[in-house]
Design a protein around this nucleic acid. Structure first.
Length: 415
RNA sequence: CGGAGCGUAGUGUAACGGUAGCACGAGACGUUUGGGACGUUUUAGUCCGAGUUCAAAUCUCGGCGCUCCGACCA
């Protein structure tokens, strides 16, 4: 991508009405733009980051046998009434009547419709287990949207649902997914702690994946020795000893980037999702659900990895791996430009994504400032100074040192 | 939902109740090019509605919107 052609432009100053780092940097960089409180649009750069996050999630979900599908955002009142959740959901669900008077809601989770859909396809123990997931927009009537992408009214969610014949199978799969979650967060470049939490309406407990950060709205207790963590909501008052190893806890603020639940038979019983076991007996399917917020994850990556100049993207989710800066002496026909164009083409041909700052009307300082703000891992500079030695400058966004590579073997020396 | 603060141009900021100004951005031309360069020039604004007043960005009331703290959070 040539910066001269990019749809968005950067802002020199952060908008006055955003306090969180993720919102400030993402808006300044042109990754997202704000529509209203808690609602943001993804611009091309932001969409690339999100796409990379989603693809990591997809790979790990597919690896544990998840099958991707795509449900409707519209949900019927009927199925929510079957689980007696329609009225209770009022506070968080956008509910309305369409022109024919039919009552609808916008989905903030999909247990009901998916359980209903599964009825068509699950009837025997031979049909189990099954796992399906989607990456889809959810809506929530947040009483107070806050902190940029961290708590919105419209947001993306990856939700996986699994169906099992017995508790043992569910427990086994649940652990498999927990491991997949660890992999996802590690690959995305954030350090997430599996944290014991309450199960809300569904079950005795759930597991959350929490990333330590000051903007986080959760409070968790983390064992300084073994890393065991639990949410404040289940942390026994005055319980200062880790149940796993006996060491002390520290209290930390954190962002919940994922949450996994054992649902049991709550939904299958209410909606009649039964199967026939080996002995011919009819039983409700046992279910679990597993969520990750990709947009929140993107914001979290920004919150935990930045400096005063801008974002420092983890390599795996950076919008582009290489930010190529052309410092051009004399406009259209300069040697610098020829060399930079060539590098841009060569790297692109090799499948390396490059954001190429070919802008003619920007000063060096401005280009460097933008490179820092946008936060791609590798910065290459082509200028008169580097060409005198037939070199290209290489600087990593997360390091101070500047290195050089000869034009010839730039590819092999690219970090 | 309780509390606090704030709405002026694309962004950031000024203006005692009395001419809406500055910087950046964006557009044009020229000169520039290693950390947000310079000159000339153009562009664009008081959230909405009522009230008080000779006069309202400024005061009052209502609405809408945004942020923060707390509560809530399937």
């Amino acid at each position: 991508m040539r910066l001269s052609k990019l749809f968005t432009k950067t802002l020199r100053e952060a908008p006055a009405d955003e306090a969180s780092k993720n919102a400030q940097f993402l808006i300044r960089g042109g990754f997202i733009s704000k529509v209203m409180a808690g609602v943001y649009e993804y611009m091309p750069l932001g969409w690339r980051v999100l796409d990379k996050i989603n693809n990591i999630i997809r790979e790990e979900m597919n690896a544990v046998g998840g099958q991707e599908l795509f449900m409707s955002v519209f949900q019927n009142k009927d199925i929510w009434s079957a689980t007696e959740r329609w009225d209770g959901a009022k506070e968080v669900m956008y509910q309305f009547k369409d022109s024919s008077g039919k009552e609808l809601g916008l989905g903030f989770t999909h247990e009901e419709p998916l359980t209903a859909a599964a009825q068509h396809f699950i009837s025997s123990y031979k049909d189990l287990p099954k796992a399906v997931y989607q990456i889809q927009t959810k809506f929530r009537r947040e009483e107070r949207a806050k902190s940029g992408l961290l708590r919105g009214r419209e947001f993306l969610m990856k939700d996986l649902y699994s169906f099992h014949a017995d508790q043992e199978d569910l427990d086994r799969y649940y652990e498999e997914v927990a491991v997949a979650y660890d992999k996802i967060f590690k690959r995305v470049g954030v350090k997430a702690l599996r944290t014991s939490a309450s199960g809300g309406l569904f079950s005795k407990y759930s597991d959350e994946f929490q990333v330590l950060a000051d903007v986080g709205e959760d409070l968790i207790y983390v064992c300084s020795e073994c890393g065991y963590a639990e949410n404040k909501e289940i942390h026994a008052e005055g319980g200062s000893k880790c149940p796993k190893c006996g060491h002390g806890f520290t209290e930390e603020k954190s962002i919940e980037v994922g949450n996994i639940f054992k649902l049991g038979t709550k939904f299958s019983s209410a909606l009649g999702l039964d199967f026939t076991d080996e002995a011919g007996a009819k039983k409700p399917v046992i279910m679990a659900s597993y969520g990750i917020g990709p947009g929140r994850l993107m914001a979290t990556a920004v919150e935990v990895s930045n400096d005063e100049r801008g974002i420092i993207w983890p390599e795996t989710i950076a919008p582009y791996r290489v930010h190529l800066v052309l410092l051009d002496e004399q406009g259209a026909r300069s040697k610098e430009q020829e060399v930079a164009n060539k590098i841009y083409e060569d790297l692109s041909k090799k499948g390396i994504d490059v954001l190429y700052d070919d802008r003619q009307d920007k000063t060096a300082g401005e280009k460097f400032a933008d490179a820092d703000l946008l936060g791609c891992p590798v910065r290459l500079v082509v200028s008169k100074r580097t060409l005198e030695k037939d070199q290209v400058e290489i600087k990593m966004r997360n390091k101070k040192e500047v290195a050089f590579a000869s034009l010839k073997d730039l590819l092999s020396q690219l970090p």
